[in-house]
Design a protein around this nucleic acid. Structure first.
Length: 799
DNA sequence: GAGCACTGC
């Protein structure tokens, strides 16, 4: 794979495809077809036409397939009311592309792997992708998997105990307990299915560690913490929330009795604030450490530190294979304990040559698999970068399946990405009907966050979207980038969960070994750290430069965060936390938002401000973006909350109060093109913030009519994000200049302020870089407020 | 007139 071309932003590839080549091609083909139409007498106009066309246009167009598709579209438009059967591929149509099955079958295979050769012998597409089978990721302990049978309810507990003994980890029980007793820190390597998450805490409990304190086990995700705790409580035959419990944001399912506590990593981090030595714990297990979330990375440094003062505290770091040595090194050469996983073998296939258009290649590969493998065999999972890719691929697949007619089994297309409304997400979990096959088009969500049963084939184009953060400008953007080896292996492993699987990588073996990084860049190096720095500060860690990070974040990012906290008044000139800073640290949100809340006390509008803070911290998924034809309704709905050019912040407040007035109705959300899921989340966050107000002694006060007071409170948090209209003489100019680091930016078109009216001074929630540099969530302010609210910051600047 | 991968507190 030529990584330089692979790094081209997806938009460019898409644009080139959509607007230049295809448009051009379409016009040419349509013209030619019209010319030819009179020559070809009806029967199958389309196919004869295509045949002639391909001869004529051979030198101009790359593949007949494209010509076929365009002429087919054109044909369909013309014969819209006709019998659909007409579009079936007629017998005898000769196209090496593979639209006639009998013909195609005679072509040779291009797969190199032996078994595929046999299976693919009869079906080859013109732009077939050549794969080379390279290796098999070994499966382990397979024979034991046969025993997983659900028993009747009365036998359930007995069965659960039997099940526990069949887990690979069971035979290592005594050795593991010995290792834990001999060493304070232990790195555990165990692949998925080894049972480490459910069993290790139970073994330690059985061995008596819970007599001295709780056993805590962290997970990167909420659902994992919940489901594992549920499972373990069943295995131990206790009620969830008693001896076994879980703790996640908005939901604490634990009691005084709880000795095995599963929690999200962020939750343990917040527990540090109340209990800096984790005195109530005897064992802390950091699970899925290889995922390297910001919270786990911080936890590493913190637990390593407290382990020195608490020799009785046992630490378990559990991870996937690749990182084990690194974890061991970080924890002063802690011993590594290996547990084999339980997984089926996965065949890895690479392409012989790099693929220029990964989307097209993925579609063709999916069709190839579908056409050559028996349908009851297993479903296909395709990893794509985002919603747009998924929609494009879904359309293309549907289209081509129609082109292939009835001779091929049904293919059910299931898109899945995090912003997809919940009711549409559930489609992927429905069992595949007999004789059909499911193809799941997924983002990275399927890499770790959810598991789909019945997947046998994985198609991995080798890309994902990654966040990048520029500490200098404070700008965030998403870039399409090649994945890491670890990520590629994780994706491949998704095919081997219920039986032997196959993974088709749309890049070459050379690309894999030479071009891909071993591991993904840890998140802590890619993100804004203001909140993390504030948390560490309130734990009394002032020397952040020397904090023991496994992979330190760029010093620029840390300095930027410190500067911001200083400007917000959370730190004094000695770098110590102020009273304001301590209050701010109580809120689990971005420091600028928490400053806004703390400041709202003064303006007597804390009720409105926590609503705005909750809405802002839900992020950009509040508005549902429907397909193009309904987009205009969605935009109008959005505008209706923005009457009087109140600004986007007040508009968010309006949305929340309108929703609240309906009694938190889901229909209302649907009518207004608002995501119900996001609103529920906003409500949860708001409730949490309201609870925290008491803790920092801020009165709930409402002042819903005084927008200036609300805006002033917002300005107290966001005065660093101010911008001034630039070139205001020109009516069409919408250029703004940020005040802090002078930089030209625009108001995001989805803002209520974008068109109607351009204020001279604004504050914004965030900067994003997409096609331009945009300010998102913008509100007008008066320049004198900046002087009044942040004189320390604006005194020298000319406002 | 744009276009937001995924988590978490």
């Amino acid at each position: 794979m030529d990584t330089s071309t692979r790094c081209v932003p997806k938009e460019n590839i898409m644009k080139a495809r959509k607007y230049s080549r295809d448009e051009y091609l379409k016009k040419r083909v349509q013209k030619k077809l019209k010319e030819l139409k009179d020559e070809i007498v009806d029967e199958p106009f389309l196919f004869e036409g295509v045949k002639k066309l391909t001869q004529l246009e051979q030198h101009e167009f790359k593949t007949k397939k494209q010509i076929y598709e365009i002429s087919k579209n054109m044909f369909e438009e013309e014969h819209d009311n006709n019998n659909n059967d007409y579009y079936k591929v007629p017998y005898g149509y000769d196209d090496e592309r593979g639209l006639n099955h009998e013909k195609i079958f005679s072509h040779g295979p291009k797969f190199e792997s032996k078994d595929m050769k046999h299976e693919c012998d009869e079906f080859v597409f013109e732009d077939q992708i050549d794969f080379v089978k390279a290796m098999i990721m070994d499966g382990e302990n397979l024979e034991q998997d046969q025993t997983r049978i659900q028993e009747s309810k009365s036998d359930l507990e007995k069965q659960l105990q039997e099940d526990r003994k069949t887990l690979p980890i069971y035979q290592y029980r005594d050795a593991l307990l010995q290792a834990v007793s001999d060493h304070q820190v232990l790195v555990i390597v165990g692949e998925t299915g080894s049972g480490k998450t459910t069993q290790i805490p139970q073994y330690l409990h059985e061995a008596g560690y819970t007599k001295r304190g709780k056993i805590g086990c962290t997970q990167p995700r909420r659902v994992a913490a919940m489901s594992v705790a549920t499972r373990v409580s069943k295995e131990l035959g206790v009620k969830l929330g008693h001896e076994v419990g879980y703790s996640i944001r908005f939901e604490d399912c634990t009691s005084e009795k709880t000795v095995l506590k599963y929690m999200t990593d962020g939750m343990l981090l917040r527990e540090f604030l109340g209990e800096p030595d984790l005195a109530s714990y005897s064992v802390v297990m950091i699970d899925e450490a290889h995922e390297r979330t910001v919270s786990t990375d911080i936890l590493f440094g913190l637990v390593k530190d407290i382990a020195r003062f608490r020799p009785d505290l046992k630490l378990l770091i559990s991870s996937a294979t690749l990182d084990a040595e690194k974890f061991s090194d970080f924890f002063d050469s802690a011993p590594i304990f290996k547990i084999p996983g339980r997984r089926y073998p996965v065949e890895i296939h690479y392409t012989k040559a790099p693929e220029a258009d990964y989307l097209d290649a993925a579609i063709v590969t999916a069709l190839q698999i579908h056409a050559t493998q028996p349908p009851g065999d297993g479903d296909i999972l395709v990893f794509l970068t985002g919603q747009e890719d998924i929609e494009t691929a879904g359309e293309a697949l549907k289209h081509r399946m129609r082109g292939l007619g009835m001779k091929i089994p049904e293919l059910i297309i299931c898109p899945i990405y995090a912003n997809l409304p919940t009711e549409l997400q559930s489609k992927i979990f429905e069992p595949t009907p007999e004789g059909a096959r499911k193809v799941v088009l997924a983002t990275n969500i399927a890499e770790t966050s959810l598991t789909i049963d019945g997947i046998k084939y994985v198609i991995d184009p080798g890309f994902c979207k990654m966040k990048s953060y520029n500490p200098r400008t404070g700008m965030e953007s998403l870039l399409v980038r090649p994945i890491s080896k670890a990520s590629a292996n994780q994706r491949a492993g998704r095919s081997g969960r219920t039986g032997p699987g196959k993974c088709f990588r749309l890049y070459t073996a050379y690309n894999y070994y030479q071009d891909l990084e071993d591991n993904s860049v840890p998140e802590i190096q890619l993100t804004n750290l203001a909140n993390v720095v504030l948390t560490l500060m309130s734990l009394g860690i002032h020397d952040l430069v020397n904090f023991d990070f496994m992979d330190p974040p760029p010093s620029e990012t840390v300095i930027k965060a410190l500067e911001m906290l200083y400007a917000l008044g959370a730190l004094n000139s000695d770098g110590e936390l102020t009273k304001i800073g301590r209050k701010m640290a109580e809120f689990p949100i971005d420091p600028m938002l928490s400053k806004m809340i703390v400041a709202s006390d003064k303006y007597k509008c804390s009720d409105e401000i926590i609503t705005i803070a909750a809405m802002l911290s839900v992020g950009n998924s509040i508005f549902y973006r429907p397909p193009k034809d309904k987009l205009v309704y969605a935009d109008n709905a959005r505008k209706s909350f923005h009457e009087g050019n109140v600004g986007d912040h007040i508009a968010l407040l309006n949305i929340y109060t309108s929703w609240k007035d309906t009694g938190f109705d889901s229909e209302w959300c649907y009518d207004n093109y608002i995501q119900f899921r996001s609103m529920k989340r906003a409500r949860d966050i708001r409730d949490q913030l309201q609870g925290l107000l008491e803790r920092v002694e801020i009165q709930i006060s409402s002042n819903s009519q005084d927008f200036d007071a609300i805006k002033k409170a917002i300005t107290s948090g966001f005065f660093l994000h101010s911008a001034r209209l630039y070139n205001s003489g020109l009516p069409s100019s919408s250029l703004y200049r940020t005040v802090k680091h002078p930089h030209t930016v625009h108001i995001h078109p989805t803002s209520g302020l974008a068109k109607e009216f351009l204020p001279r001074w604004v504050i914004y929630n965030e900067l994003v870089l997409t096609s331009k540099e945009y300010m998102r969530q913008v509100t007008q302010v008066k320049p004198e407020w900046l002087n009044e609210i942040a004189p320390h910051y604006y005194q020298l600047k000319k406002v």
